[in-house]
Amino acid sequence: MPEPTVRQMPVLAADYFHSYSVVGLLAVIGVLFVAVAFGAGRLLRPVVPTPEKLLTYECGVDPVGEGWAHTQVRYYVYAFLYVIFAVDSIFLFPWATVFAAPGYGATTLVEMFIFLGFLAVGLLYAWKKGVLEWT
């Protein structure tokens, strides 16, 4: 029955845009708040810069080398893992809203266990490979 769908569509769309425009308005208020706070701060505070003040702070002694230093990034593998898992998990939400609807039931449940199985195997594999060890 396409007709009721057509009739409902504009209303739904209007609601949708209304709710996000309110969110947008709140964002504008938030930005204004920060702008006013920073502006007021500019008027209230003293400005007396000296070279010592503008130096990078490292426990009181003069900084050695640059601030953007080399460091050992141990967790780039975590980042990969996260991306893989997070992309998977996103699909849970639309599925979660319908999986128990009449007519699905057992089928979706089996599907869920296959999905969880994939995630669990992936995690176990990463664990076994030693990716989850820090050192």
Binding site: T56, Y57, E58, P63, E66, G67, W68, A69, T71, V73, Y75, Y78, A79, L81, Y82, F85, A86, S89, I90, L92
Partner: peptide
């Protein structure tokens, strides 16, 4: 911040976000 301590802190924040966003989700 161009500060070594800040950079370390920022990276730790990133690692923590990556690790804990998932269980939360």
């Amino acid at each position: 911040s161009a500060n070594k301590f800040s950079l370390l802190g920022g990276l730790r924040t990133a690692a923590q976000l990556l690790a804990y966003e998932l269980p939360m989700l």
